[in-house]
Write a protein that binds this DNA or RNA. Structure first.
Lengths: 200, 200
DNA sequence: TTTAACGCGGAATGATCATTCCGCTTTCAA
DNA sequence: TTGAAAGCGGAATGATCATTCCGCGTTAAA
């Protein structure tokens, strides 16, 4: 497993990767807690690093934010795909999706709005964002439920969009508060509600 | 109707009220379109006024924003109260409320999140904000529907909170896009959905 | 029409950050 | 152990606003 070093090349300094990880970790925590307006200074501080170090790897705050957001999206997408694979019953899939999204919400809060930015183009399922992924996934699940007769009629795109509105991190936070900040209990309420709203 | 002028008092200059109105109008439009981050300069410009003029009436940007938001809240609250008075059938009331909120959403977009700020105290129905008003109103309507048997069982506070998530300006905007930006059509979908989700 | 207030516009000010820069440290390889 | 390449911290810089200030224009009353 020894590293291949091309002639005249130097191994990467050990502190580089460590600092990189600390920065990403700190940025993820702070962005998730308080949104894109945290100061670079503060991120650097929590990472135990100077601001200059952040800029060595990320050309701008925007790009740091984008990187963090992308990492969180990736991870959520992965969990979602897995959840949807565990069963083929559409209503079960729906439940699994909701639960994943509710469990992930803490990592996403204030980092992902889960709604297309108003400036975005009209909803485009090829868009790489989490909203688009979830919307596409839910649309498929709902359409399949309709085919097998367990979900009522109606435009699957619209039904999926309505469901999605109940899955954004902010919504999760808000509903959870009503049941003593118990995210899973809130998810149960929403699952029940959506099952009824979608039933034949 | 002549104005009473106390000794040594001068009538208010005519341009004062006119400018005040222009400023409020411009601020409402811009805040609703693009949120609290619009520049004072830009508000002044759209109002056809210098920044100094804004500051003569509003000590700070925050207070201008608060004033505009309060005005919009008042107006919406008024429409809601009226809509809820037009009938005593809970499901009809629910429909009316949804329609009002959807119609008002353009004036609110980006100005009101319709969700308690995370920093807020736990949901408090005495809070003067629009979220609290709507939540209280919906809770009452749902509870009354349950009493007369047209709404299924479940904690009215939670059911109301779930409905509310489908009524925020951002949600309205988002769902409307799916039906060609037709706000009323989107409202119909949501009404149908909620009726099903709440039915016995 | 005149005049003293009163408001007005918008340049100047100050605060708050993102971003850059550079002398000092750490790390690697010999 | 040592030299130099690569990173590092954090002060300095510059941009972007909110807010203040003041000489000038308008207005209400006489």
């Amino acid at each position: 497993m020894a590293e291949e070093l091309i002639a005249g090349e130097r191994r990467e300094r050990r502190d580089v990767q460590r600092n990189m990880e600390r920065v990403l970790q700190a940025a993820q925590e702070l962005f998730a807690e308080r949104g894109p307006d945290v100061k670079m200074e503060e991120i650097a501080q929590r990472a135990g690093v100077g601001v200059g170090t952040i800029y060595r790897r990320f050309p701008s705050k925007d790009q740091l934010f984008a990187a963090v957001r992308e990492a969180v999206c990736q991870s959520t997408r992965h969990c979602l795909a897995q959840a949807a694979d565990d069963t083929h019953d559409p209503l079960e899939q729906l439940r699994a999706i909701i639960m994943v999204q509710y469990r992930q919400s803490a990592r996403q809060a204030a980092l992902i709005d889960l709604r297309p930015n108003p400036a975005d183009a009209p909803v485009n399922l090829d868009h790489p964002g989490l909203y688009a992924s979830l919307h596409a996934l839910l649309t498929r699940v709902i359409a399949s439920g309709q085919r097998q007769g367990s979900v009522r009629d109606g435009d699957p795109l619209m039904l999926a969009a309505i469901c999605l509105e109940l899955l954004s991190p902010r919504t999760v936070q808000n509903l959870s508060r009503l049941v003593g900040d118990d995210v899973e209990a809130a998810a149960d309420h929403v699952i029940l509600f959506l099952s009824a709203g979608l039933a034949v």
